[in-house]
């Protein structure tokens, strides 16, 4: 079996996940991790798929992509079955919307050893006073303390909360 990563992007409409996965299932593909997101009215999904090495995934998905107007991108999956990477820190950031929040926060935290595993941002609030909200999870490769120190250096118009994720194993 061969592992591939599929990325599908297009305008969101109901039934995309069902249509895509049905075609894959019919051709003997096995799904592993998948993550779908809706950004604005845009649909996106990434799927890790295991399939017969002879299977031409692009050909398999041609029709469904055409019908649903999706862009398809296929990569070979280098990760095979890697053990899950467990985040040990969660960061939430919010403030009056302005440009540069993500870049500032993430570069300071990256320098302090944060490896981001999951990130989501959104804009809320009123049209006159939009607010920016970002949540992240990651691995603090140098421990939490350097991250705590790092956020002290950031502009004070941004609120940042840093919480340890203490995974329970039982």
């Amino acid at each position: 079996m061969k592992w591939s990563v599929l990325t599908l992007v297009g305008e969101d409409k109901p039934g995309i996940v069902a249509a895509v996965t049905q075609v894959l299932f019919e051709r003997g593909c096995v799904l592993a991790q998948a993550s779908m997101m809706r950004l604005g009215s845009n649909f996106s999904i990434m799927l890790r798929v295991s399939h017969s090495p002879d299977l031409d995934l692009r050909q398999v998905l041609t029709e469904v992509c055409k019908n649903l107007n999706l862009h398809l991108h296929i990569d070979e999956d280098a990760s095979k079955k890697t053990p899950a990477l467990d985040p040990d820190v969660q960061v939430t950031v919010y403030g009056a919307d302005r440009s540069g929040i993500v870049a500032q926060v993430t570069s300071v935290l990256a320098q302090a050893g944060l490896n981001i595993i999951d990130l989501e941002t959104d804009v809320g609030g009123s049209n006159e006073h939009p607010i920016y909200i970002m949540t992240m999870e990651g691995v603090a490769s140098n421990g939490i303390e350097p991250l705590r120190e790092a956020i002290q250096t950031l502009d004070t118009d941004i609120e940042i909360n840093l919480d340890e994720i203490n995974t329970l194993r039982g």
């Binding site: 053990p83 899950a84 467990d86 985040p87 994720i165 203490n166 995974t167 329970l168 194993r169 039982g170």
Partner: peptide, 10 residues
């Protein structure tokens, strides 16, 4: 909170 389990590896 985040949980894992000996009976649900990985």
């Amino acid at each position: 909170g985040r949980e894992g389990c000996l009976s649900v590896p990985d």
